[in-house]
């Protein structure tokens, strides 16, 4: 059964009118896209910068209101819901933002930040916050609870953001390029954490990335986005091995995707030389 079902989702942003021009022009940030995510799967939304990935992510968590289209989550269409009616659904769907230096309020302690969704749902419980910190590898939790974001590294901040997203046990998580702002050296740690959590929390995930190698590592399926449209969807391995659409081919040729086995060999050879 699909957890998430997107039908003909469209988002237009009005452009500034030109002087004396009569008709309003629009940016077609998301242009009639449809896809499904099965329960417990990770769908990678891949495409180059500016193709509409973040807009899609924000539509799904209803930070933005769709111009048209449907967003079915567990069978319920949330595309047209007003802010007042969204509260119940906010418990089930969370987002991890791209830049952990921007997504945490600098004036709130880690404790207050992670407490937010719990307080909003009337479920505050210090133990849950402890657990969430432990689960994302910030141990011991007491050492982090009353610190401020600026006292943490980028990787630790993103872990806090993940803890906040998971503390109320959501069923669906949108992650918008969660490692693109992090040092290369700590990316793998955060990615592996997300894979582990996805298993233990039985999460359904939309994983946004511009990096095909990351998508291959993280995702079950891939949807390739180009100019606001989805041009190709399929099993991650299939799409990368055997791309059908010319845009996907172009993307792949621009960034060679290292085969994990080939990589190991290269390392071994270097080892011999040294």
């Amino acid at each position: 059964m699909e957890m998430l079902n997107i039908e003909h989702l469209t988002k237009l942003f009005p452009l500034k009118k030109k002087l004396f021009s009569r008709d309003q022009q629009y940016v077609h940030a998301v242009d009639d896209i449809s896809f499904k995510i099965e329960k417990g799967k990770i769908l990678g939304l891949v495409g180059e910068s500016g193709c509409g990935k973040t807009t899609t992510a924000k539509l799904l968590v209803r930070l933005l209101k769709p111009t048209s289209g449907k967003i079915y989550i567990g069978g319920e269409d949330i595309a047209g819901l007003k802010e007042e009616n969204l509260k119940k659904f906010r418990k089930n769907i969370q987002m991890i933002f791209q830049d952990p230096y921007e997504s945490l309020n600098p004036r709130l302690t880690i404790h207050s930040t992670i407490a937010e969704p719990l307080i909003a749902q009337g479920l505050y419980n210090l133990e849950k916050i402890h657990d969430a910190l432990e689960v994302v590898g910030l141990k011991p939790p007491e050492g982090f609870l009353y610190r401020y974001p600026h006292e943490l590294s980028g990787g630790q901040r993103q872990r806090v953001a993940i803890a906040r997203a998971l503390v109320i046990d959501p069923i669906f998580v949108v992650a918008d390029e969660p490692t693109s702002m992090l040092d290369v050296s700590i990316r793998a740690g955060v990615l592996n954490l997300m894979l582990a959590l996805r298993k233990s929390f039985d999460l359904t995930v939309l994983f946004v990335t511009h990096d095909l190698a990351v998508a291959r590592y993280m995702c079950d399926d891939i949807a390739v986005m180009h100019n606001g449209k989805i041009v190709e969807t399929g099993n991650a391995e299939e799409v990368i091995r055997n791309p059908k659409h010319s845009y996907t081919k172009a993307l792949l040729s621009a960034v060679p995707i290292p085969d994990p086995r080939a990589k190991r060999e290269r390392i071994r050879i270097r080892g011999k030389v040294v």
Binding site: V61, K87, Q94, A120
Partner: peptide, 24 residues
Amino acid sequence: PFIESARVSGVGNTRIIVKHLAPN
């Protein structure tokens, strides 16, 4: 983004103003 993430967390308008905007 930290205001957006508060909204995703389900924080209401009044609390966003008092807790997130006012201190800043």
